[in-house]
């Protein structure tokens, strides 16, 4: 999902991703201190932390959401972060929501 700035990533967007069946969400913003809108990525970091706290408390798992920072020119780093997040979420397994939706193993 593309947004003009991670400052646009409000808590509900991340929560909706989990309601829509995501097993994990990574929020990728600019380097801290380099925000074109001054504090967009700082706000995003706080919101991600807030969502992680909610997910932890409701049994989905706070580890399923992470924030990464890199500059727009760091394609290699982006790929590395995406791979890292993918492995991380695979390690956690499917979200409890998806386990319930899939139903008991036959």
């Amino acid at each position: 999902m593309l947004v003009p700035c991670t400052g646009r990533v409000e808590e509900i967007l991340v929560l909706k991703a989990f309601e829509s069946g995501a097993d994990g969400v990574m929020v990728v913003g600019c380097m801290e201190g380099d925000c074109h809108y001054l504090v967009g990525n700082i706000q995003a970091r706080r919101r991600v932390a807030r969502v992680a706290d909610i997910l932890e408390k409701i049994g989905i798992g706070g580890q399923r959401v992470r924030m990464y920072n890199l500059s727009a020119g760091e394609g290699v780093n982006f790929a590395a972060f995406a791979n890292e997040m993918t492995e991380h979420v695979r390690g956690l397994g499917p979200s409890p929501i998806n386990v319930v939706r899939k139903g008991p193993k036959k």
Binding site: L15, E19, L55, I58, G59, I97, V100
Partner: peptide, 11 residues
């Protein structure tokens, strides 16, 4: 959203 997620996870 949090209530929906929590309750769905509980079945």
């Amino acid at each position: 959203s949090a209530l929906r997620l929590a309750r769905e996870a509980q079945g």
